[in-house]
Design a protein around this nucleic acid. Structure first.
Lengths: 209, 209
DNA sequence: GTCTATACAGTGATAGAC
DNA sequence: GTCTATCACTGTATAGAC
């Protein structure tokens, strides 16, 4: 039995009130940002009193940090390029770009990304948390695949790290920024697939052997 | 106090105090965001009373919108690729990428970009205002240059619009997101120039004749 | 238009009963 | 741990004097 319930948020398996509070806070913060959400609203959404919220989290800032850290970890840990065939660069790159776009354009990832950028001034550490959990991890996965493809001779890559950054940048394209700005509210799967195809094709032309 | 009256085409303000208020609001909002800034703080920064602020702007929201709209227009107005030589694609693309990065990584543009993303939920229209003034305008300039280069035979481009998006995406790379997240607080001109060189080189390999 | 002073609502956080 | 009730404070916005 632990004395501080708020340290359990990373275990993920709890079904108690702490989990309800975290879940409610996630919905509120991701929908409206930090400043526009009150602790009253979070307590109401969780179905508990405000004092209960403060029994689990020291302050609004701590609760916000817990939400952002958990959401950052949760969405990116499954991203992988391990099973892609490094000999068929064209097909694998398009699959990888599509997988990347489906992830970073998903509503929850966009919401976390937006909030972390918007509150980067007030919560400098959350930018680093998000970066390590998300972009840095994804880039490492892409880089590992590019190394395998280069070893297999299906791509010619001088600097795999920079190439991985450029692949991610091409895949993001302008659609990522448009989603961050809320200009494309509906996620268009056809447009996403087409964007992935274009990005993979251009990357392939630049790094073909 | 300045005797020269600035004509403000966005808010209709004419006098010196309106300009002081807008300028003070810009400094406050860009430094700390919308929610973390109070009208008291803006009035203090402008050297006027709070009632004077409300004499010129109906609400905090309207003042915020005026600041964002003006800053969005102001920074991107001068961006151009008109004088670049379309026959020397390698040199022109690197110059263009460097010019692009210098602009979008400048502290004020990053601050506006960050705040527009962060408040996209509460102020949906500001995302569109920023997009039209910034990314859409820049993309059009890049696209126009690519068309001239294609006509000159120094590049082979099937779809200039998509190519322009991809050029901007490559130039942004990951450094743009890192700046939005406040991970690279100091603007490193050497790193920026190197990033521009890499982006231009990769784009050139993909679109060389 | 500009100021001082203030109305009024809402905020984060806490005390004490159970 | 959880609740109700309440604190002290700050926020936006406005009234009235000049």
């Amino acid at each position: 039995m632990r004395s501080a319930a708020h340290q359990d948020f990373l275990s993920g398996a709890r079904g108690g009130k702490a989990e309800s509070i975290l879940s409610a806070a996630k919905r509120c913060f991701l929908a409206a940002g930090f400043g526009a959400v009150s602790m009253d609203a979070i307590a109401r959404e969780a179905g508990v009193s405000k004092a209960t919220v403060y029994a689990h989290f020291i302050s609004k800032e701590e609760l916000f940090g817990a939400v952002v850290a958990r959401e950052s970890e949760r969405h990116f840990f499954a991203f992988s390029a391990l099973e892609l065939d490094p000999r068929d660069a064209a097909a694998s790159l398009e699959t990888l770009a599509g997988r990347f776009l489906d992830l970073v354009l998903s509503p929850e990832v966009i919401a976390v990304n937006r909030i972390v950028i918007g509150e980067a001034t007030r919560f400098p550490v959350l930018g680093e948390v998000f970066w390590q959990a998300g972009p840095a991890r994804v880039r490492a996965q892409i880089e590992a695949f590019l190394r395998r493809a280069a070893a297999a001779g299906s791509l010619r890559i001088a600097d795999p790290r920079i190439a991985a950054e450029q692949f991610a940048a091409l895949a993001r394209g302008e659609i990522h920024l448009r989603h961050l700005l809320r200009l494309d509210p509906a996620l268009d799967t056809a447009a996403t697939a087409e964007a992935a195809r274009c990005a993979a094709a251009t990357f392939l032309r630049a790094f073909a052997p």
